[in-house]
Design a protein around this nucleic acid. Structure first.
Lengths: 213, 213
DNA sequence: GTTGATACGATGCAACCGCATCAAAATGCT
DNA sequence: AGCATTTTGATGCGGTTGCATCGTATCAAC
């Protein structure tokens, strides 16, 4: 029998190369040749891993969305018992918002795939699942906070999550474009979380919609 | 002197063709040949209007952002005196969210350009200006509502607008991907606006309070 | 009517795309 | 060791891309 190769790890390796190229040269930068070179393998190797380019892109998208959601989930699993729900939710939202410099790569990649998914339903499906997973995570966090007594128990976790999700998405998109907000994105998230609290923490800012659902 | 052509209207005509193609065939669909054919002109005509393809894309982006922002602004200018601030803000947010079927085109086009702007700073600048304009519009609407006594006067309009803007952006993006929210996007917006009201209509549960689909 | 600057549209061109092909190298089983 | 078989990396191919070129058609100015 011939050489044994672990296709799964190689696929992930190539997926990382795809992400690198999309990050550096935009959505158009991920050509088969460049991907192969970036991954340090031959073009043939890429072709054997993925039957077609779209399949490669789909795998790369699935790869990165799993990496991001797992990142958020791990953070919680590791500290759910020790940290307060407020701290957890804050950290999770900040992680998901992808505004830190080291997250710019992920933000760019997701933006590229979002645009591409417009024309390729299979990619859209992957993104839908990722968003659904994120929303479920937020729902769990809010309910957790309600169990610990930190969050108002008259809140509908589903409703809140369905607001937080687009808020996070929008903040990511705006930050990616270099939007200069009059108030830092972190504060926007903080104010939003304050609205969930049982006893609003009298925000440092003069105004805030504490009563806003 | 040769034949006189109105380059400005022709540019707009071509820009519309660009938008059509991006809408129908994704970000990659706007090749010079296809654009020319879609616009019903020759390739040479397109090249004479725009020195380079990037210049064409930049013009098309500027064209569509102006169309969208103007659409929101007009709606207000036409009815600012007659309508309540709540109605105006609601209508404006819904218009900007681009979730109606007939707005899907604009949503798709903006998503494509957002991804592309990742690699082309000049496009990013155009989008930044568009978002800044939108934010200013929201600030004006909130202050208007405060003047009419509809909105709480302890609100910081800048802060609220800086939340509404990413919320709208995120809702657009999610809707474009076919995200199936547990609560309609319209209700999410409505609940957010309720938080601005002097006397909230129904704080927690939406239960289809004000108009909604 | 002549002129000449300009718009026009087709065509050429070099580069690149995704994908198919294939001889040669590499490897694990017998 | 010998062999069968997969992996490999390069090359070919048809098609498309953005951009440049060029002869022709057009129309204002004289």
């Amino acid at each position: 029998m011939p050489k044994q190769v672990d296709y799964e790890t190689r696929r992930r390796h190539i997926a990382e190369a795809v992400c690198d190229l999309i990050d550096r040269h935009g959505p158009e930068g991920a050509t088969l040749r460049d991907v192969a070179q970036q991954a340090g393998v031959s073009m043939g190797a890429v072709q054997r891993c993925f039957a077609t380019k779209d399949e490669m892109l789909a795998f790369a998208l699935h790869h990165i969305t799993e990496r991001i959601t797992a990142q958020g989930q791990e953070e919680i699993d590791a500290s759910a018992a020790k940290e307060s729900a407020v701290t957890l939710l804050t950290a999770t939202l900040r992680t998901l918002t992808l505004i830190e410099p080291h997250q710019r790569r992920d933000a760019r990649i997701l933006a590229a795939f979002t645009a591409h998914a417009t024309a390729i339903p299979s990619l859209a499906e992957i993104l839908r699942q990722a968003h659904a997973k994120t929303r479920d995570l937020l729902v769990w966090l809010i309910r957790y906070g309600q169990r610990t007594g930190e969050f108002r128990d008259d809140l509908d976790a589903d409703l809140e999550a369905e607001t937080l999700l687009p808020l996070v998405e929008g903040l990511t998109s705006l930050a990616l474009l270099g939007h200069r907000p009059t108030v830092p994105a972190h504060d926007t998230l903080t104010r939003r979380i304050d609205g969930l609290l049982m006893q609003p923490s009298r925000p440092s800012r003069p105004a805030s919609s504490t009563a806003s659902t």
